[in-house]
Structures are given as C-alpha cells and as structure tokens.
C-alpha cells in the first residue's frame, strides 16, 4: 500500500495509514527523496503513529530515508512512535541515530520552523 504524501508549505508530510511491507517502506523512502527535490521542501515529516511494529528493517529504512533527505538539503522528523513500540525497539537494540523525532505533528512542524530560523 502506497503512503499518501501531502505538501504543506515548505514541508512534505507522509502519513502512514496501515502496516507496511518492506517494499512499501522502500517506495516511501524513494518517493520522499523525490518529493523533496520536486517541491524544494525544507522538511519531511513521517507519521508512524499507526505502526505497531518498528523492526530492524523499518528502523534502518527510516535512518536511510533521513540521510537521503538530508543529502537533498532538508530535514526529517519522525512523528508518533508509540510507547510500546519504543520499548520493543530499545529491547531489540535499535536506534534511529540522529534522526529527529517528535510526539505529534504540531511539535514536528514547530521543530522544523525553529530549525529554519
């Protein structure tokens, strides 16, 4: 299932709607990198609120995504990692490196706006 990507001013927002396969995650990564170029976006927000699992592949893909977006001159914020998911990620030994995270969309937008100042 393809993740819808919305443009909102200087930012693009990808709101994940359901569980994603590995292929879906890779498509999302590539779509976002392409969107940043197309819209000259300054920031990318990925909402993962509905994901009930962030395993090693998902974490790696999110880190790669943030790195690709950064190389294209924009910043990525991951929004909505559930507390249980965060707990399992820590147990598994996963980390998102220096990828920015926020609790909700509002906080993510504030983070990107502060960055731009």
């Amino acid at each position: 299932m393809r993740v819808p990507i919305l443009k909102q001013g200087d930012y693009v927002i990808a709101s994940i709607q359901s569980a994603l396969t590995d292929d879906d995650l890779l498509k999302l990564r590539d779509d976002l990198a392409a969107h940043v170029g197309k819209y000259r976006s300054k920031g990318v927000i990925v909402d993962v609120t509905v994901l009930d699992v962030m395993d090693s592949f998902a974490s790696r893909t999110v880190r790669d995504l943030a790195q690709m977006v950064r190389l294209r001159g924009a910043k990525t914020v991951i929004v909505g990692i559930q507390p249980e998911v965060a707990f399992a990620m820590v147990q598994l030994g996963l980390e998102l490196g220096d990828v920015a995270t926020a609790l909700d969309l509002e906080e993510a937008l504030a983070l990107l706006q502060n960055e731009a100042r």
């Binding site: 590995d22 009930d52 699992v53 962030m54 395993d55 090693s56 592949f57 559930q82 507390p83 249980e84 998911v85 707990f87 399992a88 990620m89 147990q91 598994l92």
Partner: peptide, 17 residues
C-alpha cells in the same frame, strides 16, 4: 496485552525476515 504484544510481533518480524 500492551508492550508484550508489540514485543512478540517484533520478534516474529525479525525471525520471519
């Protein structure tokens, strides 16, 4: 329930992968 469901689902995801 809760965190245990996520831990089980995550472990299954890893071994299936």
């Amino acid at each position: 329930s809760g965190a245990h469901l996520v831990m089980i689902a995550t472990a299954v995801s890893e071994v299936a992968r």
